[in-house]
Design a protein around this nucleic acid. Structure first.
Lengths: 202, 202
DNA sequence: CTTCGTAGGAGTACAACGTACGCCTACGAA
DNA sequence: TTCGTAGGCGTACGTTGTACTCCTACGAAG
């Protein structure tokens, strides 16, 4: 066996994530990542076969830091909420990569582990068969949507101010946007999830 | 005023949507759309300033067909559900363009109109201030996540079969995937939304 | 210590993309 | 009939992902 690899896939993923964190998802390029590592562009292809695979590595790096062991809490609702909050926190640290989560949610072990953890809680709570399917999908849909909305949403963030200004055309939207200023992303996420959990029954 | 335009923006959007419906979002290109219209590539720039604007036109075309007048139904929950179902139906007809919905959800009149309609229902139901913010965001998050999940999700569609096969590593995921086979996207969407609505109280 | 084969690193090159620029020309107003 | 404006489009450039090919560093074998 000649020559040892000078890079681990983790280092590669970390470099890509650094680029995304610093300059945004739009500049995530084989060339920019290679520059970040002081390597030739084509050298990256010794570690990944694709740009897609590079993106998957980023997703795995972010989700890899999440603890998916089911927390020891009194109610299953709290267990679900704690799991979701862990995910939200991990993603919140790298908001620019959220779109990657959605694109690669298929073939990502991290996403699967998270699903497995949530399902085990639901199963323990007594959800079976199609009820469990519905409940799980509802949770995942909310999670995905909320993460996506957090960084870019029209209510929190920069979009809020824009919406607040066109009050005559969309009065409710404008009024709600003003109220939204006092709501942190964390509260928004947590209390929205709580609403969903209230409606869930095995 | 010399020369009349030979194209309406609707026709342009329709051509782009046709390309997306037929060959997928990946081949949506200024060149492919131009070919679809038997025009030169650069001619499109007489109608849109950007590729982004072209994508926005597609979003508007899809959402433009949705009726956002609040339906006359007994409960506000049913009114919300009906609005969401209308959106789901419109999007369901063009599943490949869902990612565009998310990217352009900011500057899209259609998205704003939908938000305004939902908020008016919530307001009529007695939601005010931050409670309305939370409720609205929860609904939007679910809607976005569910639409996204519908076409590509790991539970319905092709991903289901894959998941069902790796049972030893993700037992719950595999079992749930099998149960998911009997659940149509429509039921999944509607019943998941019902769960969320059950937890909503002004 | 020398030698050798394997695999890592990188330069070149190409197709496809978005789009700036500038030309030609069709057509409504005069 | 003429003219200026604006529609249509060909060309070309920078950027992207990546196939191909070469050179070379290095662990194992002698």
């Amino acid at each position: 066996m000649p020559r040892k690899r000078s890079l681990t896939t983790d280092q590669l993923a970390a470099a890509a994530l650094a680029v995304v964190d610093r300059d945004g998802l739009a500049v995530l390029t084989m060339r920019t990542v290679a520059q970040e590592l002081n390597m030739g562009t084509m050298s990256l292809y010794r570690y990944v076969s694709d740009r897609e695979q590079l993106e998957r590595l980023v997703v795995e790096l972010v989700l890899g830091g999440v603890d998916f062991t089911v927390p020891d809490l009194p109610t299953w609702q709290e267990r679900i909420a704690a799991l979701c909050e862990r995910i939200r926190l991990a993603v919140h640290a790298h908001p620019a990569m959220v779109p990657l989560l959605l694109v690669h949610r298929h073939a990502s072990p991290g996403v699967r582990r998270s699903g497995e953890a949530m399902l085990s809680v639901l199963a323990g709570a007594g959800f079976t068969g199609e009820r469990r399917v519905i409940a799980f999908r509802a949770l995942v849909s909310y999670l995905i949507g909320a993460l996506q909305a957090e960084g870019l949403g029209p209510l929190s963030g920069a979009g809020t101010d824009v919406l607040a200004t066109l009050g005559e055309q969309y009065p409710y939207l404008a009024e709600t946007a003003v109220s939204a200023r006092g709501v942190t992303p964390q509260r928004e996420f947590g209390e929205g999830l709580a609403l969903l959990l209230r409606g869930l029954t095995p």
